[in-house]
Design a protein around this nucleic acid. Structure first.
Length: 559
RNA sequence: CGGAAAGUUGCACAGCUUGGUAGUGCGCCUGGUUUGGGACCAGGAUGUCGCAGGUUCAAAUCCUGUCUUUCCGACCA
């Protein structure tokens, strides 16, 4: 491609909308252009990279025997009524009507469509398993689109669905996908890790997320070589901590206006590990209050509490001062002793001996409180796992890192096949619901994750096989006969070899041109200048800035 | 959905306090001089100042409403 023909407009300054590096660079390099909030156009260079990502995904999906189809983004309401998600999905579903007032949505995901397709085409166990995928534009009416392609309202996703005879079949399909995903993200050159994930809105019984490690990530990952999980789901080994063995009698301690764990440790001159932290949540649906007990140096994982109570995270909040008026406790001095309330106890609390806790009276705490003797409740893991905690496999320290979710695999089970009557006839002639899995990869999000990982102060620095073009030939002066001839010759030769090559035949000064290609992230730059008379050019590697003057033949040999 | 800010040319911004000719830099066009890492000189084009009302002789500027966008939080892939 000749640069003079390219629809390329780079920006020196970052548009105001972008706050993170990868978003700024995608805009500045002219790879994407904002249409409206959370909706972007992929410009020629951006689209080229996107296609390379798609092709890697295609190759690996095809390799495990998944077949590509292409559905419409437009989906009829009826299918979503069948699955029950038309009402459940909420305002993030982009809904619209046609001229006859028939209702549709723009799909954020395609479980309903794929399920209906397989329901209509598969009858017998002999035709299973089936694995289908598509690469398609998805819609989600985000409350707050941000970070460019990371959280947008329109995005490109690969979604795959498997249909099996039974759980064992699903296990195999899931496993195949899991390994294909590992190969895909490796080939995308992402520094990633697979983590155990919460199944959230889509439903199902097992799930892993593939996270590209990055400090701009929106999720927190807890991991080490033995274990990895989303922080929302992460478990850690309970720490058995007690300084004393003999149970002592409870004593009231006067703690005037001492309400926080921090103040208490100072006032009592003790460790937070000896204090029981008591948090009261309110179930916003039933209005029930729930007391949660955790060791003073820990934080509560609200998602775990919500899961235990069978609630969405949304349906749970801290109890307010008002809620306390009907209890026998006092805000700031809450404790489990004698308090009549449903109680969740983190396992670590059960190991505490002669602990401190709130006295349920103003300015009073209790000393020498012990599990079972003085209070009881449901023992359940509700602790937020953080860096430094020990894993449950080998008891080694865990690390904490941010991640961008670029893929997720789910075992759906029969949730959709039952709801939508997607059944097959087994060898005994009985109708059985198919066992499903679904598997997504955020293609457009991956593009930005790659840029986030591969950039420096000069711009994007794509890995060779993902770059929109592999090499650019930059004549210092395209009006100079010798330079022009050599540049043209090399361009034609590389094109003949099938190399993705740009000839920068623009009239701009050298500096302008090179800055553009640094910004865009072309991995190799060939500068045709004064040495052209000797058949020599400067060969520059974008990644490390390494430059050397080489014979043309040697340069051509590199591609 | 809660809190905060912002909308002025393709991009980044000034002007608004104290109402009176629409500005700057980048980019774009023309001509000339330059030419190995974002050149220089001269000239030029591009704006219903987000939209709608109001106040006023006069509104980018003051008031009201509205829309949009961004940031923090909540939610989510």
């Amino acid at each position: 491609m000749k640069a003079s023909r390219m629809c390329l407009k780079t920006l020196k300054e970052a548009p105001q909308e972008a706050v993170i590096d990868s978003h700024v660079l995608l805009l500045r390099s002219g790879m994407i252009k904002k249409n409206v909030a959370g909706v972007y156009t992929y410009m020629p260079l951006g689209l080229k990279v996107l296609k390379k990502i798609e092709n890697i995904v295609r190759e690996e999906m095809d390799a495990i025997g998944s077949e590509e189809i292409l559905c419409s983004a437009l989906q009829p309401k009826e299918l979503w009524i069948e699955s029950g998600r038309w009402t459940k999905y909420g305002p993030e579903l982009m809904r619209l009507k046609d001229r006859n007032d028939r209702e549709f949505c723009l799909g954020p995901t395609h479980e309903e469509i794929f399920t209906s397709i397989v329901r209509d085409s598969v009858r017998s166990y002999k035709e299973l398993p089936v694995s289908l995928y598509q690469i398609q534009t998805k819609y989600r009416d985000e409350m707050r689109p941000r970070f460019g392609l990371i959280r947008s309202r329109e995005f490109i996703m690969k979604d795959a669905y498997t249909f099996d005879i039974d759980e064992a079949g699903l296990d195999k399909s899931y496993n195949d996908m899991y390994h294909a995903y590992e190969r895909i993200f490796t080939r995308l050159h992402l520094n990633f890790t697979a983590v155990l994930a919460d199944t959230g809105n889509i439903g199902g019984n097992a799930s892993h997320q593939f996270m590209a490690l990055s400090n701009i990530g929106e999720s927190t990952i807890i991991y080490n070589s033995n274990y990895s999980a989303d922080q929302e789901k992460a478990e850690a080994k309970a720490d058995i901590y007690n300084e004393e063995k003999e149970l002592k009698d409870i004593v009231e301690v006067s703690t005037p206006n001492i309400k926080t764990i921090e103040d208490l440790t100072k006032f009592l001159n003790t460790s937070a590990k000896r204090i029981i932290k008591a948090i009261v949540y309110k179930d916003l649906i039933s209005k029930e209050l729930v007391l949660c007990l955790i060791r003073g140096d820990r934080e509560i994982n609200k998602i775990k509490v919500a899961n235990k109570l069978g609630l969405g995270e949304f349906d749970l909040d801290f109890a307010t001062d008002d809620d306390f008026k009907n209890t026998s406790s006092v805000f700031g001095f809450i404790g489990p002793v004698g308090l009549k309330m449903r109680t969740l106890i983190d396992p670590e609390v059960t190991y505490m001996v002669n602990a401190y806790c709130g006295g349920n009276k103003k300015d009073v705490h209790l000393k020498n409180v012990n599990y079972k003797r003085d209070f009881d409740g449901e023992v359940v893991d509700i602790r937020l796992v953080v860096a430094g905690d020990l894993d449950i496999v080998k008891g080694e320290p865990l690390k904490e890192e941010r991640g961008i979710e670029v893929g997720q695999v789910f075992k759906l089970g029969t949730k959709y096949s039952k709801a939508m009557n997607c059944v097959y006839v087994n060898d005994k002639g009985q109708e059985v619901p198919m066992v499903m899995g679904c598997y997504g990869i955020g293609i457009s999000r991956a593009l930005q994750a790659i840029v986030e990982e591969y950039h420096d102060e000069n711009g994007i620095s794509f890995p060779d096989d993902l770059a929109p073009y592999k090499v650019v030939i930059v004549p210092v002066k395209y009006t100079d006969e010798v330079m022009k001839n050599l540049a043209d010759k090399m361009y034609n030769e590389l094109k003949k070899k099938g190399v993705d090559v740009i000839l920068d035949d623009r009239a701009s000064s050298l500096g302008v041109k090179l800055h553009d290609w640094d910004l865009v992230g072309i991995p190799y730059h060939i500068i045709v200048g004064r040495d052209a008379v000797n058949n020599q050019v400067e060969f520059k590697v974008r990644r490390d800035g390494n430059k050397e003057v080489l014979d043309v033949k040697e340069v051509l040999k590199k591609f």
